[in-house]
Amino acid sequence: MATSKHAEFIGRIKKALGHPKEDDQRMAEFFNLPISENDRTILEHIKNRTPEEKQKLFEVLIEAAKPINLNVIALPDVSSVTSAIVDLVEQKEPEWGSKKSVVAWNHPLIERLNLEEALSQQDVPVYVAELKNEEEQSSSSSDERKRLRQQIIDSYIGITSADFCMADAATLVMRTRPGQARSVSLVPLIHIAVIRYDQIIADLKELYALLKWDPENHKEGLTNCMTFISGPSKTADIEANMVHGAHGPREVYVYVISDKD
């Protein structure tokens, strides 16, 4: 049933175009082309970026983050990120209800923050956005997923990492994986992303070149959901007044760890 109109539909377009050239020939003009000189240069450039260039990129990121009210903070190491998060949790109040809880990705970098221990003094639970039971992972409406969904809804801070951060527009790039639920960066009031300094890239051109031609990134592709986040949620639908926190987080913090380990 789903494809019944496909041939008719494409046929009508073909007729409208009245193309003299064969389909295969035209397909070959667009798809499965070898890497362009331009993309090759971009990849080389990313690989060989000097410390000065990296510093420059970071400065671009800081500048781009300002007008969109994105808080980008450089911190020397993992433990200072942990303290920063502990401070935030202490300062910020939840949006719905009074119980504080935090949800975080299952991610090596986040794991190193030892948040559970750090936040235990404040009695703030840290949920991990991961399905634990292998068997249940394939089931469509498992209790496990319901539980996790509720934990994300209940949490007022969501903590993630990101695949990249594009400096030119201060954009976090996240792909979806098990343990790295998309709603963690969306449903809570505050979103914290922790990244390493060397995850900063220049722009969309670099990202696309990586996704297309860098073997490791290409293998994973865009996944079934790749998300860009540039700052907190916002709207200007009432008399063009800018208000943050329309549906997504009202505040976004990016902690950039500058250590080399």
């Binding site: 979806t176 079934n224 540039s230 949620s233």
Partner: peptide, 26 residues
């Protein structure tokens, strides 16, 4: 007049096994 909108999502399919969220059908 934005360099990038706040959210840009690339959606290419339903939730995969092991993923915590996303639609069952796309």
């Amino acid at each position: 007049a934005q360099n990038m909108a706040t959210y840009v999502s690339y959606i290419g399919g339903p939730r995969y096994p092991g993923q915590a969220d996303g639609p069952e059908e796309f």
